[in-house]
């Protein structure tokens, strides 16, 4: 399955919906989107990965790159993910300590609201 990307803003949070496979072939498209969002002043990003079928280290690199960019503007990049097959790769690489990972968009929005 190819990669489908969509995004919308709610208050000062930009929600990026990702569907499909994030790998060495498709990850550049996600990278371009994240860079474009940051360049347009969206510094608080929530990446919804609930419909992601596959994620490899190239995809992790794109997410870490996005996190570096938003942090340079005192922003945030957090994730929504409940799929064990995807969470496993975050645990293996220790990136669960780097990203805020939530069980739903609503839960992430509540946490984001508390942090404002």
């Amino acid at each position: 399955m190819d990669l489908k990307l969509d995004h919308h803003s709610e208050d000062n949070l930009t929600i990026v919906d990702v569907e499909g496979e994030i790998d060495v072939y498709t990850a550049p498209r996600l990278r371009e989107l994240l860079i474009d969002l940051v360049n347009k002043g969206n510094f608080h990003l929530l990446v919804n990965m609930e419909k992601v079928d596959f994620l490899d280290s190239t995809g992790l690199g794109v997410l870490v790159g996005g996190l570096k960019r938003v942090r340079a503007h005192d922003g945030s990049l957090e994730l929504v993910c409940t799929q064990e097959r995807i969470l496993k790769i975050f645990r293996i690489t220790g990136l669960t300590k780097v990203f805020g990972i939530y069980a739903s968009v609503e839960e992430a929005k509540e946490a984001h609201g508390r942090d404002k």
């Binding site: 280290s57 690489t93 990136l95 300590k97 780097v98």
Partner: peptide
């Protein structure tokens, strides 16, 4: 792999 300290950003080269 990253340290427990959140400030650390892993280099991605050998992450695979």
């Amino acid at each position: 792999v990253p340290e427990a300290d959140n400030s650390f950003m892993p280099e991605m080269d050998n992450l695979g």
